[in-house]
């Protein structure tokens, strides 16, 4: 079920990725607080119908690769939060919301 090696997935486990800093209208499953933030792919869940299209009753096909991306808390909040130095945050992000991060 967990397609670790999705043939057409653009990113692989270990890749550094940046969440697009985009703010389109509509039903979006990429949280606001992660947009523009840089993290690392720790899992490839497989491909799933696009929720942005499902939200309007469409089939959401073709399916989009879905990644588990981990972020350092410090990279997300930049000091403005109550977390430990090692604390982290992971979220599932669809491929069209990710871009390669500068290394």
């Amino acid at each position: 079920m967990r397609a670790a090696d999705l043939p057409d997935a653009r990113f692989r486990v270990g890749d550094r990725v940046r969440v697009r800093a985009a703010y389109p209208p509509g039903h979006i499953r990429t949280p606001f607080y992660l947009r523009g933030r840089t993290g690392r792919v720790i899992g490839v869940h497989g491909a799933f119908p696009n929720p942005e299209r499902l939200a309007w009753g469409e089939d959401g096909l073709p399916p989009i690769p879905l990644y588990e991306v981990v972020f350092a808390m410090a990279a997300v909040w930049q000091g403005d939060g109550a977390y430990g130095a090692r604390d982290s945050l992971a979220a599932d992000i669809y491929e069209h919301w990710l871009e390669e991060a500068a290394t």
Partner: peptide, 15 residues
């Protein structure tokens, strides 16, 4: 303890 990593999982999709 501070040396434990707290990892928050935000359930944003189909998992």
């Amino acid at each position: 303890p501070e040396d434990v990593e707290v990892r928050v999982l935000d359930s944003t999709a189909d998992c």
